[in-house]
Design a protein around this nucleic acid. Structure first.
Length: 256
DNA sequence: ATGCCGTGGAAACCACGA
């Protein structure tokens, strides 16, 4: 079973690229972030014609998350991260697919830091920690995946010294991610590739992709029952080289 | 290297992203 995550940066503007990638790689389940589309403008029919059923939580202009499935039914569990009734951003959706609990998330960027946006990021992160703490010890396999907007370590960025004051790499952010892992989550890519230079995002400008000036910010975190079933993982980085592509590349895992 | 690009929405510029 192949499960992927992809920050599409606009699901309608990105539709040709998304459909091409789906046809090429045929993942069984896909988590999408940054739909940038209101609920009624999600390309449900185009994805159905490509073989995918979907649940999604849209929002005008920004954010938006979705879960697609090629075969198994998608049983939605929640579409809001608990802990703040005032939070209006569509950044979280969670479902059971083929016996696996899959949380699709788009953690706030948080720049500029410090400031209110960084405070929102840390608050959202804390709510994620609380909720993840309830998921990690389930006997059910659980996956937290999506765009975490976290550079976990200096090995996950082309020039760490340039990012120390950035919301993606600040001490508070890395500490929060470490605390999340310490609950008992396994970073699937780092489990399989402890040393390799692996990126999932390259800026649109400064020729970042050609220079391989990237970041690893899209992650798969697995609880113990899921980690036991991990077979392989990777980044479809060639997709970042396509025309009219997202600034993120798809990331995937293969589980038994 | 402090958004130089890209997207969506509103209005012919702006907010936002990482």
């Amino acid at each position: 079973m192949k499960i992927a995550t992809y920050n599409v940066n606009g699901v309608n503007g990105r539709l040709p690229v998304l459909l091409r990638w789906l046809e090429e790689t045929a993942p069984d389940v896909v988590c999408l972030q940054e739909l940038k589309a209101p609920q009624e403008n999600f390309p449900e029919e185009a994805l159905r014609n490509a073989g995918y059923k979907a649940i999604w939580h849209g929002q005008k202009s920004w954010n938006g998350v979705a879960i697609l499935s090629r075969g198994a039914e998608i049983a939605e569990r929640r579409r809001v991260l608990p802990g703040d009734p005032e939070d209006s951003h569509s950044r979280y959706i969670e479902a059971t697919v083929d016996g696996i609990i899959i949380a699709c998330l788009y953690l706030p960027n948080g720049n500029p830091a410090p400031g209110p946006k960084f405070d929102y990021k840390l608050g959202w992160f804390n709510r994620l920690q609380v909720h993840a703490g309830e998921l990690v010890n389930l006997d059910t396999p659980v996956i937290l995946t999506g765009d975490f907007n976290v550079i976990p370590t200096e090995h996950d960025v082309y020039k760490p010294e340039r990012w120390v004051d950035d919301a993606l790499f600040r001490t508070e952010t890395r500490t929060a991610f470490r605390e999340l892992l310490d609950q008992g989550w396994t970073d699937a890519i780092r489990k399989l590739y402890p040393e390799d230079k692996i990126y999932t995002f390259w800026d649109y400008f400064r020729n970042a992709y050609a220079r391989d000036a990237g970041l690893r910010i899209d992650h798969f975190l697995l609880n113990a029952p899921m980690e036991k079933r991990l077979l392989s993982a990777g980044v479809d980085r060639h997709v970042r080289g396509w025309e009219k592509t997202s600034d993120h590349a798809p990331v995937w895992i293969h589980v038994s």
